[in-house]
């Protein structure tokens, strides 16, 4: 009986465990091994040395890309939060009809079912020289001829990525706002506090866990993105993932690519750890 139960449990658990092992741990282990190898033009050879890591932290070229990626991820997260928060707030507290609320919520979330590539591509057509933005500005007479300043730069990348990842910001903020009991705002008003102060002292502090969760997701997703730079980014738009991709491609320097990928993984993991600690602090409040 006990043995049969154990067998059953093993049968249920083994496929996911096997899956995780094969497709998560094995690849990372391979990456780790590669990261110690050495480049020997035109290819690379097994070795155990830290040269690749030294290169990442001493060659300003890589350092700069990592910094730029962090900066872009930060601005994308910030921008997404600034757009998503008022939107979620409006949905939760201002839209009275549940049907309409659901519709407006889905309007933001539904694009997740559309291919990422397609959504990023949309912005190419909006910002391009023959795009909607240029046509609009010309038809209103603000511009006399199409401008190319909108596309192929960091701003275009940030705008595109905000659009692509905004569902990940709206969802957690919406969830956390929806959980705030209405009576808390009434209690604040009852105690003589006006709407703005109530927002600053009650609603905003209570929604921080949602903002942190959304920020973390958007940040990490942007940090690993390599399609937006490719589609709408300019010469200064390379992000860390593009550099890694090229190490495994044209540059044929897998050891350096592997080391970069692991450094990136460490950065993302530490961000998630910090954010997780932060969210734990706020737990138990609604208990």
């Amino acid at each position: 009986m006990n043995g049969a139960l154990r067998l059953k449990r093993a049968l249920v658990l083994s496929p996911p465990l096997l899956w995780t092992f094969l497709f998560m741990f094995v690849p990372y282990a391979i990456l780790l091994v590669y990261s110690f190898w050495q480049q020997k033009y035109p290819t690379f050879v097994p070795a155990f040395q830290f040269g690749n890591y030294v290169q990442i932290f001493t060659d300003p070229q890589y350092f700069r890309v990592i910094l730029r990626t962090l900066k872009i991820a930060f601005f994308v997260s910030l921008g997404a939060a600034l757009v998503a928060y008022p939107y979620a707030y409006f949905l939760v507290f201002r839209v009275r009809k549940p049907g309409l609320r659901l519709m407006l919520y889905m309007a933001v979330v539904a694009p997740l079912w559309v291919s990422y590539l397609l959504r990023a591509y949309t912005w190419k057509t909006i910002l391009g020289t023959t795009g909607i933005l240029n046509s609009f500005l010309m038809s209103t007479g603000i511009l006399s001829e199409p401008s190319s300043v909108f596309l192929y730069n960091q701003t275009a990348m940030i705008v595109t990525l905000i659009y692509v990842f905004i569902p990940f910001m709206v969802m957690p903020i919406y969830a956390v706002l929806e959980k705030i009991p209405h009576s808390l705002k009434e209690a604040s008003a009852d105690l003589g506090v006006g709407r703005v102060r109530t927002f600053l002292s009650v609603t905003l502090p209570l929604s921080i866990p949602g903002i942190v969760a959304g920020f973390t997701m958007t940040f990490c997703l942007t940090f690993g993105d390599f399609i937006a730079p490719f589609l709408v980014g300019g010469p200064d738009g390379q992000m860390i993932a593009n550099v890694i991709a090229s190490q495994f491609g044209a540059s044929l320097n897998w050891p350096l690519g592997a080391a970069l990928a692991l450094v990136m993984l460490m950065i993302v993991l530490s961000i998630i750890t910090v954010s997780d600690k932060f969210e734990r602090l706020g737990q138990g409040r609604f208990a």
Partner: peptide, 20 residues
């Protein structure tokens, strides 16, 4: 007159204590 400007106070059924 809005609640914030009335000299009355309420004990809410769910207490409505600020959790933070």
């Amino acid at each position: 007159v809005p609640p914030s400007k009335r000299a009355v106070n309420m004990v809410f059924q769910d207490y409505a204590l600020f959790p933070h």
